[in-house]
Design a protein around this nucleic acid. Sequence first.
DNA 1: TAAATCCTGTCA
DNA 2: TGACAGGATTTA
Length: 276
Amino acid sequence: MPELPEVETYARQLKPQLLGHSFVDAHVTWPRMVVFPDVESLPIRLRGLKVRDVTRRGKYLKLELSSEAQLLIHLKMSGRLRIEPITVSPEAHDRIRFGLDDGRELRFNDTRKFGRVYLLGPNDQDRSPLNQLGPEPLDETFTVEEFARRLSRRAGAMKPLLLDQSFIAGLGNIYADESLFQARIHPLRRADTLTEQEIESLHSAIRCVLQRSIDCLGVSFDFVYTGGLHDPGATYQCQLQVYQRQGLACSWCGQPIERMVIGGRGTHFCPVCQRR
DNA sequence: TAAATCCTGTCA
DNA sequence: TGACAGGATTTA
């Protein structure tokens, strides 16, 4: 499940591949994945637009295009991206193929069909899903003070809050669990009860965990994200402390990691190190 | 606040 | 064969 570090890795790897190239068309085999514009208009609007930059916002991959347009891609659960010559046969579950001006295609493969694409012009900004996103955790403007202010206004449990993209952008199930563990905060802990020290610790944990994963090209699991474009190289899965480690020894205290369902999501934590 | 929804591969 | 995972949105 691609989260901030995995999408960041894609952005970095796609940028040199796409910069300066124009799109010539788009083939969509699962129309639901195109949110805006309608599927018929997508190839027409996309034709001729040149890639100016490839960046990331939250879990969205953002292709800045000519004419002030932008192509947003959300990989959701099972989305993967590849670039291949048009002469190479598409794979199973290739849902959208974006044709480039040099005979290559950007291929959006998504087994579960949850992935989403938006092509937005300068007049479509009110439709941008980026409008709903909270602060970017690795940005300099995301300060402890800002974090503390936002936490103090929330009475719910920490785990669902960290997954709320309007509270903070980019964290998913893996990094929410890992961050709470590193800060030694129980996932059910009420947000507005965190001490100043805990807030500081969590702020630092979130940034540390994300940055270290980016340095490792993210996490890669079977059949899901493969750590970038063509060379699976993601290694952060080897450094996970709690995620999917229920029953295994906590690296701090040796007690078994537990798993419980919070807000409908599998949640992994150490019952000894993470106090409620 | 919780559950249903969209999906398919995996696993029991 | 049926339960389940899981991001984000929608509905109860």
